[in-house]
Structure formats: C-alpha cells, structure tokens
Amino acid sequence: MQNTPEAIPAPVAEAIIAAGARLDQRNWVPATAGNLSIRLPDSRVAITRSGFHKARLVPDSLMVVDLDGRPEQPGLRPSAETLLHCGAYRRFPEAGAVLHGHSIANTVLSRLAGDSITLEGYELLKAFPGLPTHEASVTLPVFDNDQDIARLQGVVEARWSRMAADEDVIPPGYLLRGHGVYVWGPDMDTALARMEALEFMLDCHLHEHPRT
C-alpha cells in the first residue's frame, strides 16, 4: 500500500486559518500576498499553498513541506517564499510559527531604508524577546528582494551569522525591500503579537520619518 501524507492536525490548520483572517482584517495580506506557517514534529512544516487569499483559507489551502521546502505531497505547490520560512525554522530551534505580510508601512519604509531600520523608545518593543523595557532599541535587517529565493535565503543566513557574532540577540524578524516583513515566534499567538507590535512601530516610524 502506498504511503499517504499525514494530515495537518486540526488545531494547526485552525490556527493558520485564524491568523490569515486576522492579518487580512489589518490589510497586511492584500490579494493573495503573504504566507503563514507552523512547525510540526519530525522536521515538517505546515504552510499556506500558493495562490490562496489569506482571508478565505480552508484546510485544503494548506500543505506540508520538510525543512528544505520539499512538498510532502508532490502535486501541491507551496508559497514562493517557503524557503524563507524553512530558513527561520532551521536557524532558530525555538521558532514555532512564521508570518509574512505586506503592510503599507513595511513596504514603504523598506524601499526608503538602507540595510536596516532601528526602532527605539517604543513601549511595544517589549513584545520582542530580551527587551523588558521601552528603553531599548531593535535594529531590523533590510534585504534587497530577490526572485531567487534560495540565493536570498543565503544572504539572510550570512547576515544572521554576522549578527550572532556581534550582537546578543538576533531580532525575530526582518524586512524585504518593497516586499514585506517576516516575523516568527515560539507559537502562532506570539508570532502574531510580535507582528502587530512591529507593524505599529513601523507605522509610527513612517509618520515620524517619512523620508528615512
């Protein structure tokens, strides 16, 4: 008998579907933009399939890949940026959920920024790990967008390695120039909270520094 892919656990599917609706309410995943994932046991990842609007996800809108982005069911096509999700899971064992969205603030700021954006003095910095007070700063990397996702992930990995050598904490997120934000957390609730906090701060930053 031929082996069939294991079903995505119902609570995992429900969490991704609910997250898609929540991001859509904030206009962070317009059209079919964005992708969402949750780490499964045994080096597997449940992730949104390509071409599905995140406000109208159903269990069949999801699929499973391994940590190298290979589909468990070959006939299904994952989101184009699946390898960026997998890269976060490989690099950060504590990462349990990854979100990618396209807000106006993160898109505009990433187009205007250099290789990073620094956020400091915001109360919501406390949503990030290791920052118990607003008297802190976070420097978010900004990467040039690249349609070659494997090459892009290599650039991201190299930056993470440099940050690990120079800094105490690598922030759980980064920006792609003109393309959106990636954020992760130990579970979906935490990833959503971090994304909401980050988007609030980016929106504030855009209003305070419209040309920086």
Rank of each mutant, 00 (worst) to 15 (best):
M1Y: 12
P5S: 15
I8V: 03
P9D: 03
A10F: 13
V12A: 04
A15Q: 12
I17R: 13
A18F: 09
R22V: 11
L23W: 05
V29S: 11
P30I: 12
P30T: 11
A31H: 10
A31F: 11
T32S: 11
A33E: 13
N35K: 13
N35V: 12
L36A: 13
L36I: 15
I38N: 11
R39E: 08
V45Q: 12
I47T: 11
I47K: 13
S50G: 10
G51S: 13
H53T: 15
V58Q: 14
S61F: 09
V64S: 07
D68F: 10
G69Q: 09
E72N: 10
Q73T: 15
Q73H: 09
P74L: 07
P74N: 03
L76E: 06
L84C: 06
H85Y: 08
C86P: 08
A88M: 15
Y89E: 07
R91M: 01
F92H: 00
E94N: 08
E94L: 09
H100M: 05
G101N: 04
N106M: 01
L109N: 01
L112S: 12
Y122H: 13
E123C: 06
E123F: 05
E123H: 08
P129T: 08
E135Y: 12
E135H: 15
A136W: 01
L140N: 00
P141C: 05
D144F: 04
Q147I: 10
D148V: 11
A150R: 11
R151G: 12
E157S: 03
R159S: 09
W160F: 03
R162F: 01
A165Q: 14
E167V: 01
P172L: 04
Y174V: 02
Y174C: 03
L175V: 04
V181L: 05
V183K: 02
G185S: 12
D187E: 14
D187Y: 08
D189R: 12
A191E: 09
A193E: 01
A193Y: 05
R194A: 01
E199N: 03
E199P: 03
C204H: 14
C204Y: 14
L206W: 14
P210D: 13
R211Q: 14
T212D: 07
T212W: 00
